[in-house]
Simulated scan of single mutants.
Amino acid sequence: MHRTLSLLLLLSGLGLSILVPGGPIETRDFSHISPIILALFNSYLTVLGVGSFMLAYFCFQRQRWAFKATVLAGLSYLWVYAIDLARVFPTSPTPMPTALEVVEILGVLLALPMSIIATRLACSQPLSMSTGRAAGSERALILVSGALLFVLSACIILFATLAAMGRL
């Protein structure tokens, strides 16, 4: 089940990543929304997307904390897609493209089993779960990776916010 969960996280992260404003699917205009609100929402979405890739690795490694975090990620995907599909937020005078609606429905269909599987794994206590600490070289790799992900995330947030405002 942990492998399935990792796959669901990867697919969810990929699905969300193709929905970046200014990309091929998210073409709506959000210039009427405050740049601060857009930046905060894009930050949340970026953390969710990038975090999904990281969680996929740790779920594959059977880290109990990652199963618990994935429950929150699954619920976050459900929430994000539900408020958009229900036309609650973000609203736009531009209609939702059909491709966007299809990807978001698929996102909901991935998030439901993700949440269920993560809950089961978080509540169970398999004997084979890794609990060891990272070695020195592993810690260094994690720190460098984290720094690179931070820079990448900042660039994604800036791009998505400017694109959503129609400034690209």
Rank of each mutant, 00 (worst) to 15 (best):
Q63W: 13
L75H: 02
S92A: 07
F30C: 06
G74D: 05
Q63P: 10
L48R: 09
L168R: 05
F30H: 08
L106Q: 02
L9F: 11
Y44S: 08
P126V: 09
E138I: 13
M1K: 06
A99D: 00
S43N: 15
G136N: 10
I105E: 12
A86Q: 13
A69M: 07
Q63N: 12
F41C: 12
G13Q: 00
A39W: 14
A164E: 05
Q61H: 10
T98C: 05
S17C: 08
F159I: 00
L19N: 02
A140I: 15
M165G: 06
P126L: 03
P95S: 06
L112P: 02
S12P: 04
S145W: 04
V144N: 11
L7K: 10
L10I: 12
A118E: 07
T4N: 13
T91H: 05
A69T: 06
A122P: 06
L45K: 06
S145I: 05
P95Y: 12
P21G: 07
I157D: 01
L75I: 11
L11D: 07
L85V: 00
G49F: 07
P97W: 01
I142W: 12
A160W: 03
T70R: 03
E138P: 00
H2A: 04
L85K: 03
V151C: 04
S76V: 09
Y57W: 13
S137R: 13
S130Q: 14
F41I: 14
P35V: 14
I83K: 09
L143T: 12
V80P: 05
E104H: 05
G107P: 01
V50N: 02
L38C: 05
T161M: 05
H32N: 13
V151S: 12
P35S: 06
R139H: 13
T94R: 07
I83Y: 00
S12D: 15
A86R: 14
T70P: 01
A147S: 15
G107A: 01
L141C: 15
T119Y: 15
N42E: 10
T91D: 02
L48N: 03
P90M: 09
P126N: 06
C59M: 09
E138D: 07
R62K: 13
L7W: 15
I18N: 00
F150I: 07
S145T: 07
A140T: 14
P126M: 01
V80M: 11
P113G: 07
L48S: 09
M96F: 11
M114R: 10
P95K: 01
L7T: 13
F159P: 01
L11V: 11
P35G: 06
P126Y: 04
E101L: 14
F67W: 08
G166P: 02
E26M: 06
M1A: 09
I83D: 04
F150N: 10
G146S: 03
G132K: 11
S43R: 05
L48Q: 08
L106F: 05
L158P: 02
T4A: 09
V80E: 14
L78V: 04
I142E: 10
R3N: 14
L7V: 12
R87V: 10
L112Q: 07
G146C: 02
I105K: 06
T161W: 02
A86Y: 11
A56H: 09
